[in-house]
Structures are given as C-alpha cells and as structure tokens.
C-alpha cells in the first residue's frame, strides 16, 4: 500500500535547493548525451548506409565490423557501461563520477541506438529516388543530404523521440551511481529516507518530462509529415 505522509515530507523544503537543480542536471545530461549521440550516431548511420550491401559504396568488411561494434555496445546495459568504461570516462572528462562523467557512457550507449534508427529510416526511402538522383548526376554526398535525409526526416524524428524517452530513464539510472539528477534525488532523499511523497513527486516530474518530449517529438513529426500531405 502506498502511504503518502504529507506531514513529514521534506518535498517543499527541498524543492528549490535540491529538486530544481536536479531537474536541470537531468535535462543537461539528457540534452548533451542526445546531441553527442545524434552527431556520432548520424556519422555511423551514414557509414552504415553507404557501405551496406545495397548501399551507394558497398563495402562488406566495413559494414560488418561497424555493425558488429554497434550491436556489441547495444548489448551493454547502461548501468554496466557506466562502471565498465570508467577509466575511459576519466581519461575524457577527468573524473568518473558526477554529471559530466555520466554523459560519456550515456552518449556511448545512445549513439548505436540512434544510428540504427537513422539507418532503418533511410532504408525505408524508395530506392528509385537514388536511381533518379544518380540519373541527373548527383554525387553520393548529394544523394545522402539532399535526397535520403530529407525523405527520411519524419521517421528519424520519431525514432529520436523514442530514444530520448528511453534515455531519460537511463539518466536516472546514472543518478544511482553518483551522477546526480532526479534519479539520485528520488533514490536518496525519497526511497532511502522513506519519504514516499518526495519519491512520487519526482516520478511525476519525470512523467511530465516524458510528455513534453513525446509532445515535442510528435509536433515536429507532424510538421515533417504534413509536407508529404498525408496528414490532411
């Protein structure tokens, strides 16, 4: 049974000095890991699309090796990745604990997911468009940036929305191992201090964040899709 004791909760006391900073820490971790993950993921997706057996520059070796790496990283649970690569994290950001340190494993586990989403979205684009682009002499680069990405954008956006929500959960997980943010607050001040109101309040905040991400993603998706006219 959930028993919410509003008499003894420190929720309101901690709101300004602990919870609000934790919200911004979570947002920062998510934002930076998503942006970095998107950059790396896009590059990896481009290489995958280029070198795939039906790609513009088929290269089975590169495709297989990169695909293998991507799959392997995806097999690591985020929490394991956080501890497993702590030496690497320390080498990159100088420390293996805290918010900055969490961004490294989060990015590392986000980019393969994003890369696969982008790859799948691009594979859905009508192959005849590539043929058409080739017919007027477009270079591989122009085919990727002027044809494939614009046509796949709506699908990429919806993939990114799902990934962001998935990794909102992962940032709270990172909180458990010293990264701070909402996860750490819910765990330490809520769960461990038996302050259920605090814990559920933070779940509620996370829920609102999910709604915001989903709503924003859907908004952009619809904008993209409307271009194709199918939403009318």
């Amino acid at each position: 049974m959930i028993h919410l004791d509003f008499e003894t909760t420190r929720l309101f006391e901690y709101m300004p000095k602990i919870i609000l900073p934790a919200v911004s820490a979570t947002v920062r971790m998510l934002l930076f890991s998503m942006i970095l993950g998107l950059i790396i993921g896009t590059l990896v997706a481009i290489v995958l699309v280029l070198t795939s057996p039906h790609g513009l520059k088929p290269n089975p070796r590169v495709y297989k090796v990169l695909g293998f790496i991507v799959n392997m990283i995806r097999a690591f649970p985020v929490i394991i990745l956080i501890v497993a690569i702590s030496p690497l994290t320390r080498a990159i950001v100088g420390t293996s604990i805290g918010e900055k340190a969490a961004i490294v494993p989060l990015t590392l586990s986000a980019f393969p997911v994003i890369a696969r989403y982008i790859e799948a979205s691009i594979l859905e684009v009508d192959p005849n468009l590539i043929l058409a682009a080739r017919s007027f002499g477009a270079s591989d680069r122009q085919i990727i940036f002027r044809v494939l990405f614009p046509e796949a954008m709506h699908s990429i956006v919806s993939g990114l929305t799902t990934t962001s929500i998935l990794f909102l959960g992962a940032t709270t997980l990172a909180g458990a191992v010293g990264a701070g943010g909402l996860g750490a607050v819910a765990l330490t001040y809520g769960y461990q201090w038996f302050d259920d109101v605090m814990m559920y309040a933070i779940v509620l905040i996370l829920f609102v964040m999910v709604l915001v991400i989903q709503g924003g993603g859907e908004f952009i998706y619809r904008k993209q899709k409307e271009k194709g006219g199918t939403f009318k």
Partner: peptide
Amino acid sequence: KDIGMIFQNFALLNR
C-alpha cells in the same frame, strides 16, 4: 548529366 531520365513510379521526393 547529358541523359534525362523519367521513371514508371515517377521517383519524386514526397517531402
């Protein structure tokens, strides 16, 4: 570049 091409399924960018 010297050969224009049109296709059975038109191959236009929908977006």
